[in-house]
Computed example of a mutant assay.
Amino acid sequence: MTDDTTRGLAPLREQILSSSPQGFDRTLGLHYLEASADAITAEFVVTPALLQPWGITHGGVYCSVIESVASLSGQLWLIESGRTGHVVGVNNNTDFLRAVGDGRMTARSTPVHRGRSQQLWLVEITAESGKTIARGQVRLQNIED
């Protein structure tokens, strides 16, 4: 088995865990705390910019967080398994379980299936109280170089 550096896993993990999120993750305020090929943990704070008109978190925020965390999880696994390429989302199914208007949220990914052509990841978002706020599954297509 090759080490993280030869496969490009270490640089990707370092980029994910950097204190400066990129792209839409920056807009969401998403910060990654742990990253491996088996799970990612991230957190974000619900701010007024993430609320819908009735003062609760917009459902699209949860969908986006779930998509980001699952996609990065799948990409790390793809690289760790010795393959080259990238993953793309083909389905995001998110359930909204509790309405919240503020607070720190934690998202954690768990693999359901990791196969030759597709992956399925479960991501749960919990509040500081430990209660599950939203959960979703994202199916990813492995696109090999």
Rank of each mutant, 00 (worst) to 15 (best):
I79Y: 01
H58S: 15
T5P: 05
S64D: 03
S129P: 08
S71H: 04
R108E: 07
P111A: 04
P21A: 07
L17E: 01
T57E: 13
V87Y: 12
T132M: 10
I56E: 09
I16T: 02
R114M: 03
R83D: 11
V46L: 09
E124F: 05
P53E: 13
V88R: 06
A134S: 15
W121F: 04
K131G: 03
L9A: 11
G60W: 01
G130M: 05
S81M: 09
T126H: 08
A35W: 04
T5V: 10
E14L: 08
S18G: 15
I16P: 05
P11Y: 06
A39F: 08
G59I: 07
G115R: 00
H58M: 13
T106W: 09
P21Y: 00
D3R: 13
G8M: 11
E43V: 11
S117F: 00
L28V: 07
T57K: 14
G29F: 00
V61T: 11
A37Q: 13
R104H: 13
E67G: 13
A35R: 05
E124Q: 12
T110H: 06
I56C: 12
S36V: 04
G29Q: 00
A10W: 04
L50S: 09
Q137P: 15
N91T: 12
E128H: 04
Q15V: 06
A37I: 10
V88C: 07
P53W: 13
E34C: 08
P111M: 06
S129T: 15
R83Q: 14
A37Y: 11
G55T: 14
Q118D: 12
A99E: 15
T5C: 08
L12M: 10
G115E: 01
L120H: 14
W77R: 11
L28Q: 03
